[in-house]
């Protein structure tokens, strides 16, 4: 359904004295999602998750440079196709109600995603499906409760007949009940054949619904594993960082690792995790490891097995 190959995104920044500097925030990134699958992207703040979502939708900021290919339905997702597909086949679920126009009633905002047919009728039907009664139509975003807002945003994605849904942090700071409800909606959509890219910094959320999990670190994918590998002491996981994430969870050892991830990778400085890695060897410092297949998953580490 969707395939992202060798995606790199960089920004040009002007330093003092008009010197230009390019900062690569996503490097050589690969992911793949098929119909009916939920792929969760997990990574801490600043690892480039949102930029990946924006790249797929074609809404990167103007000063961003992108390379690599994105395939949708087997064909390249060009700017032209992105313009045609976003809002209907490819839908975006944003992080919060702040992504809705504050001065526009939610009913008519959701209707804007309906391209053809009886707009009002379609919007009503979707709202009914997510138990949003007719009074909701004429509410302004600030009048929605947290749960209603989630349902409006999901409804807005579904109303155009989405086949691929990109959800960027759809459940931040919400009541656990609302989180579960929203994730339930996503699972349901996947079961109906949608491909879903679920972006989150919370591995717990990801484990709840996803089929597989891609772990981001400083703008690269370091591991892609089926959810079933996240079990026990993380013996089936491949990358040291993924294991560390898993073991830092409260229900496991609650044992966080020290240090921070670099905000972007420096060229020729090896594995971005090396400053925090206990398995580090000389090659880890000199060259970025390539991503390779290991036991039904992928990993970017010299010493993974």
């Amino acid at each position: 359904m969707l395939e992202v190959n060798n995606l790199s995104i960089s920004f040009i920044q002007y330093e003092k004295g008009l010197k230009q500097k390019t900062i690569q925030v996503i490097s050589d990134l690969n992911i793949k999602i098929s119909k009916g699958e939920i792929l969760a992207i997990v990574g801490s703040s600043g690892s480039g998750k949102s930029l990946l979502a924006h790249a797929i939708l074609g809404i990167l900021p103007k000063n961003a440079l992108m390379s690599g290919t994105i395939l949708y339905d087997g064909r390249e997702l060009t700017t032209k196709r992105q313009k045609k597909l976003r809002g209907n086949e490819i839908a975006f679920i944003p992080q919060s109600v702040n992504f809705l126009d504050p001065l526009m009633k939610v009913g008519s905002q959701v209707r804007s995603s309906v391209s053809a047919g009886e707009k009002k009728e379609k919007q009503r039907k979707i709202f009914d499906r997510y138990s949003l009664d007719s009074r909701t139509d004429s509410l302004f975003p600030f009048q929605l409760s947290g749960g209603m807002a989630r349902r409006v945003l999901v409804a807005s994605a579904v109303v155009g007949g989405a086949k691929l849904i990109v959800a960027d942090e759809p459940t931040p700071g919400l009541h656990p009940e609302v989180v579960n409800e929203t994730l339930g909606h996503l699972r349901e959509l996947a079961n109906q054949g949608c491909a879903i890219l679920l972006i989150t910094h919370d591995i717990g959320t990801a484990l709840n619904v996803a089929d597989s999990i891609a772990v981001f670190y400083s703008g690269i994918t370091i591991e892609i594993s089926p959810v079933s590998d996240f079990s026990g002491k993380g013996e089936s996981l491949r990358h040291p960082y993924t294991k560390a994430l898993w073991n830092a969870l409260p229900q496991n050892d609650f044992n966080p690792i020290d240090g921070f991830q670099p905000s972007h990778i420096e060229q020729h400085s090896g594995c971005p995790f090396n400053s925090r890695c206990t398995f580090k060897s000389s090659e880890c410092v000199s060259k970025l490891p390539l991503i390779r297949d290991v036991r039904f998953g992928k990993v970017r580490c010299y010493h993974a097995t």
């Binding site: 809404i59 919060s96 391209s115």
Partner: peptide, 24 residues
């Protein structure tokens, strides 16, 4: 954010300006 989201929903150009820009 709401202009970004509107673009992600396929709105663009003058219509986008009229619907969300002028309103605000």
């Amino acid at each position: 954010d709401y202009i970004l989201y509107a673009r992600a929903k396929g709105e663009s150009g003058f219509k986008l300006l009229l619907r969300h820009g002028l309103r605000n």
